[in-house]
Amino acid sequence: MSSNINNEVVTPLNLGKRKNINNKIRDNLWGYFFIGPFIIGFLSFTIIPIIASLYFSFTSYDLFSEPRWIGLENYKKMFTDDPRYIHSLKITFIYVFGGVPLRLAFALIVAMLLNVASRAVGLYRTLYYLPSLIGGSVAVAIMWRNIFGDIGIINLAITGLGLDAVRWFGDPTAALWMLIFLSVWQFGSSMLIFLAGLKSIPKSLYEAASVDGANFVQKFIKITLPMLSPIILFNTIMQVISAFMTFVPAFIISKGTGGPLDGTLLYSLYLFKQAFEFFSMGYASAMAWVMLIIIAILTSIIFLTAKYWVHYESEGGR
């Protein structure tokens, strides 16, 4: 991976040694010249803010006067004196653990459907990817808001099926599911990743299984799932993290309020409101730290369980 390209100079031994030291210094200088921008940016836009944020989280700070040290007060308030926070945490969990599995399941099913030799697959792949492509935009959030309106096309379809219309903006649970549906609707990018993974599974495995008389379900459980498991792991982690930080759809669909009755007050939105609407910068910083800890815990749990369900070919299974 890293053969040293500059050291291969043919010189008498003692001279070579000095040259080697010079080369090493030069290599280091070049190395830091190239990655220098990253280090400078990392220190100024990440490390310093992280330290400041940790400090703010122990203070009461409104941006206009100096931060005042209050110890663990912010953290205590979050869990004992702010039902809105607990509520926001709860619905964010529902959003993450309702949306991500649904989205991945959809992505996998459609990827398997499309993993056939047909000229039309390219077209379908594009069709299914488009929602993902535009999903992060304000335009789509506006669209979503309107198709779920009291007289929007979703209710038109529901009543068309003979069911009662749902008041998506009247019921906090329905409003949250509206956000979950928006996230599931964008399964296309995961589907593309799964499709690439499916294509890399050797056909011989399936052929051998067929010879042994395995049916579709057996092949899926014994071949497809294990072979895809590293990709599923990667996807799950990335999706959980990004779902936890979802902001734009909640902000647009509720017009920045998190309503109805805080039904769409996802974690990021509540944090944003605390910081830039109520100017509780200290409290919002503490919220950000709890978010970081929750994400770290979730990621480690997924990683720790990975050894039970993720299959690595190079290690001979497991």
Binding site: S2, N4, D27, N28, W30, G31, Y32, F34, I35, F38, I39, F42, F45, T46, I48, P49, I50, A52, S53, F56, I241, F244, M245, S268, L271, A275, M281, A284, S285, M287, A288, W289, M291, L292, I295, T299
Partner: peptide, 29 residues
């Protein structure tokens, strides 16, 4: 390039991928 601390900085860079923007948002502001 081969230089002292390459592995360290690379790991830092990968780790910063996972950092929620919310953590740095307020101090950056």
């Amino acid at each position: 390039l081969k230089f002292f601390g390459r592995g360290f900085w690379f790991a830092i860079m990968i780790a910063s991928l996972m950092l929620p923007y919310e953590v740095v948002m307020i101090p950056q502001y």
